[in-house]
Nucleic acid binder design. Structure first.
Length: 595
RNA sequence: GGUCUCGUAGCUCAACUGGAUAGAGCAGCUGCCUUCUAAGCAGCAGGUUGCUGGUUCGAGUCCAGCCGGGAUCACCA
């Protein structure tokens, strides 16, 4: 049974009977821990229709519910708040319903399709901490929508062309002496990143030299020979110069090889990859079409612009005077291509940092001006930066936290702590490695996902590696502990029977609390989807684990002599383990059987 | 400067979108392993929710103005 709906209906009935009014909106909220009850009706707004003060209103409704329904067993009124106690028998029914549904928490298909873009790195340097937040976030939002019955297409746009990759190419050509991942033993993305840094180093020196000879800074930036080489490469690339394209392909290939290793360890996946090099031409066509239709305009120098001043924004360039495309151009092309490839999607979610909020505002407006109605269903899932205790990550200052290094450190630290605790004597070396990976990555993912995505967050390495408290491993541990109970129950051949579950007539407070939380799981998923916030799921899982641990600590399950209660508690534990596993899975976090 | 955004315990974060005496974790202090995994549990302490007004039965939440962070306003991506 759906207790929330049943309760709402009963309350509406009571109001109709008592005050002769139909009311749609009810303020029903969880009861504060200090009062008895689980559901609280806020009665202040009802005072107007009841023509009584809030307290009398609450009392009247409470009295009605107790005498006229089977759901509410007791009530108490504090000021205008009506606290309702649901009968334990009803909780037992709720639990029975959940226990019987093997697909609890997974809604059937609703026939709707969405696209989620995430990751979308440049191909000139390795992935870092910021990308981790992006990847975990995008992956998790996609999984949450899937659980709610959506079909979700995970994609990314790979920024494989442009001046940034040409910089690495130029530097490699000048100083690389043919170095490859094979010859150097370096991961492909790391190798290409090395030459990006190399470029920057020489570029700075050249600028300085030119300025010492009297050039202005702006001039020096343009005249630096190494920059000229990079720009020349970009032009050659757009002109499809064979040698340049060859070099570009080779170096990008190295990067993809490196990335795929990193993605695999992160546990993220993509249904389809889009490459900027494939989409920018479509973008160009669309811009020219818009120009012909008068949506855009051309300046004397030949560059194409959009005027968004009537929308409160400014002018934005869409094509350079030399006809080459800018970032916006290819994003226009990519969006259109995606709706052609997946005609059934209603819209798409772009997981991109909040520094690009303006960009997406402009992009969606342009798409709307071009006549694409789905533009309104495009959503920028904008997330805050990840700061370090020392401040912002800066590549120049070498404070960038590398994704591969970080994952490795987390796994190593998890292994170290696991060995110190010494509970793993029956595991093989291989199993210990695998467990450490699960725990380390679990800690990292939970750390990055537990914070509201919209907010900028602090990454404190010492705190992130904590395995106690408000962490992923805390939840993993709770799961492992429950699994030990299940194994013991199986060994003792205690098998809960779903038809017997309603024989339970009284529940412990901790049990009631946990059933309430589990029952609320779908609501939480909806909330998480509505807000595009895996943090809602993360905090739900934490609260559930916390609630179960209170039960676990206060009630020794196998000491129970009442067989019905014993079986109920086994079933109860199974359900909690199952919901913990499912909710953690939505965060991309695995839960172990033992730890 | 314009626009957007954030400011909650020493630190990191919550607060069901306007509801009760603002909650967790970490750090500190005190208890609990002969019993299902102590990566746990129970407790103590910690707050003028940046400031000042306003709206209302009720404001951390909405509005205005200050103060202080951050982002953005590129023919970079």
């Amino acid at each position: 049974m759906n207790i929330d709906l049943a309760l709402r209906a009963s309350i509406q009935d009571s109001i109709k009977t008592l005050f002769q009014t139909n009311i749609e909106q009810l303020q029903l909220q969880p009861t504060n821990a200090e009062f008895e009850g689980s559901h609280t009706l806020v009665c202040f707004p009802l005072a107007k229709i009841s023509k009584k003060n809030p307290e009398q209103t609450a009392t009247a409704i409470g009295e009605y519910l107790v005498t006229h329904t089977e759901i509410v067993s007791r009530y108490n009124v504090v000021k205008g708040f009506l606290n309702l106690v649901i009968a334990d028998r009803v909780w037992a029914e709720v639990f029975q319903f959940i226990y019987s549904d093997k697909n609890f928490g997974l809604l059937p298909s609703n026939g709707k399709e969405w696209m989620v873009e995430y990751s979308s790195p440049n191909t000139n340097k390795p992935l870092h901490l910021g990308h981790l937040r992006n990847n975990f976030l995008g992956y998790s939002v996609a999984e949450i929508y899937k659980a709610l019955g959506y079909r979700v297409h995970k994609v990314q746009i790979i920024n494989d062309r442009g001046i940034h990759i040409c910089k690495s190419m130029a530097a490699w050509k000048l100083f690389g002496q043919g170095e490859t991942p094979q010859s150097s033993g370096l991961k492909g993305d790391k190798l290409v990143g090395k030459y990006y840094v190399e470029f920057d180093k020489h570029y700075k020196i050249q600028i300085k030299e030119l300025m010492e000879k009297g050039a202005t800074e702006a001039d020096a930036e343009k005249q630096a020979p190494i920059m000229k080489q990079a720009v020349e490469m970009l032009q050659k690339w757009e002109a499809k110069d064979e040698a340049t394209v060859q070099l570009w392909k080779m170096m990008n290939g190295w990067v993809y090889e490196g990335f795929s290793f990193t993605y695999k360890r992160m546990g993220v996946d993509f249904e389809k990859l889009y490459y900027e090099s494939d989409t920018y031409l479509l973008g160009k066509d669309e811009v020219l079409r818009g120009l012909a239709q008068g949506v855009f305009y051309k300046k004397e120098d030949g560059s194409v612009w959009v005027d968004l001043s009537s929308d409160g924004l400014d002018q934005k360039v869409l094509l350079r005077a030399d006809g080459t495309s800018v970032y916006m151009t290819q994003d226009i092309g990519t969006a259109i291509l995606r709706f052609r490839d997946f005609p059934k999607i209603e819209g798409q979610i772009y997981t991109v940092g909040n520094e690009q909020e303006y960009h997406f505002k402009v992009l969606f407006l342009i798409l709307k001006k071009l006549g694409y109605s789905w533009a309104e269903k495009c959503y920028h899932l904008s997330y805050g930066m990840v700061d370090l205790p020392s401040g912002k990550m800066k590549s120049r200052e070498g404070t960038v936290v590398d994704a591969d290094d970080l994952m490795q450190e987390m796994a190593e630290e998890a292994e170290k702590q696991t060995r110190e605790l010494g509970k793993i004597d029956d595991l093989t070396e291989e199993q210990i490695k695998s467990l450490s990976e699960i725990i380390g990555l679990g800690a990292l993912k939970f750390f990055l996902l537990k914070v509201d995505p919209k907010k900028r967050m602090l990454f404190d390495p010492n705190e992130s590696i904590q395995l106690q408290g408000h962490t992923g491993p805390f939840i993993q541990y709770t799961h492992a502990r429950i699994r030990a109970i299940i194994r013991k129950a199986e060994a003792m051949e205690i098998k809960p029977n779903r038809n017997e579950l309603t024989q339970i007539i009284s529940l412990e407070p901790a049990e009631r609390e946990v059933i309430f939380m589990v029952n609320n799981y779908i609501n939480k998923l909806n909330e998480a989807a509505r807000d595009y916030s895996p943090a809602v799921v993360a905090n739900f899982a934490f609260d559930l684990a916390k609630g179960y641990n209170q039960f676990y600590q206060s009630i020794p399950i196998f000491n129970e002599s009442d067989q019905a209660k014993l079986k109920f508690r086994i079933a109860f534990s199974e359900v909690v383990a199952d919901v913990l596993r499912k909710s953690m899975k939505l965060l991309g976090i695995e839960v172990p059987e033992k730890m």
